[in-house]
Write a protein that binds this DNA or RNA. Structure first.
Lengths: 103, 103
DNA sequence: ATAACTAATTAGCAATGCTATATATCACTT
DNA sequence: AAGTGATATATAGCATTGCTAATTAGTTAT
């Protein structure tokens, strides 16, 4: 879902996503590695949620593979955002009824 | 973390946990099955976060295996609650910067 | 030439979640 | 006594997933 969020913001590519996660990802996503992100991108593309176009090498380094959301990807992102809200709500219900005793 | 929360509230056993999740677990945990919960309980016990005691069969059905938190389990639950807050915060950062464009 | 940065790829392992089934006990009905 | 349904635990087996680690390759600067 987070990768779909990032790609939804603007067309981007794997290395940039990793850099962005490393700088603005906080404690949780600030440590993302290639071996984690690239396989997710392949799965998202295989599932039809994102599509890629190759761009020849410009200023620096190898050729980039730019991704953007498909229509199906936009729909999936909407569903995931709904799911995420439900998920946080459900977990926090259990957390809330615990904290009284625990904290 | 959710199972540790439930066990922290009061000593309980697998079947009761599953029943509780099915009734109060909402959309997300309302569908929990034995094959999901029991292996998690075994892992939590193997990791030393919970301990069990057997109780002979009382009113109905087989003998129950009651679980409660160890000291290590209480510590782990605290860490997980902190992690959970960080995690939600980090994800919501990305969600927030997406929603402007997307929704 | 080489170091440093950009960029993508993939092998391989361990952890995890879930489906599905099996087992056993007890209470109640027919 | 046989069967049904609720209670309760256990586990085989599969697919998915996350991560470590290493490989390849192009560009820029020293």
């Amino acid at each position: 879902m987070v990768l779909l969020c990032l790609i939804a913001q603007h067309e981007t590519y794997g290395y940039e996503i990793i850099s962005q996660l490393n700088t603005t990802g906080g404690k949780i996503f600030g440590n993302a590695k290639e071996g984690t992100i690239y396989p997710i991108l392949y799965r998202l593309e295989a599932a039809g949620y994102i599509q890629s176009r190759l761009a020849s090498s410009t200023l620096n380094g190898g050729s980039k593979k730019y991704y953007n959301l498909t229509e199906s990807g936009h729909l999936m992102l909407q569903e995931l955002l709904v799911f995420w809200n439900d998920f946080v709500g459900c977990v926090n219900n259990f957390v809330a009824s615990t904290k009284k005793n625990e904290v």
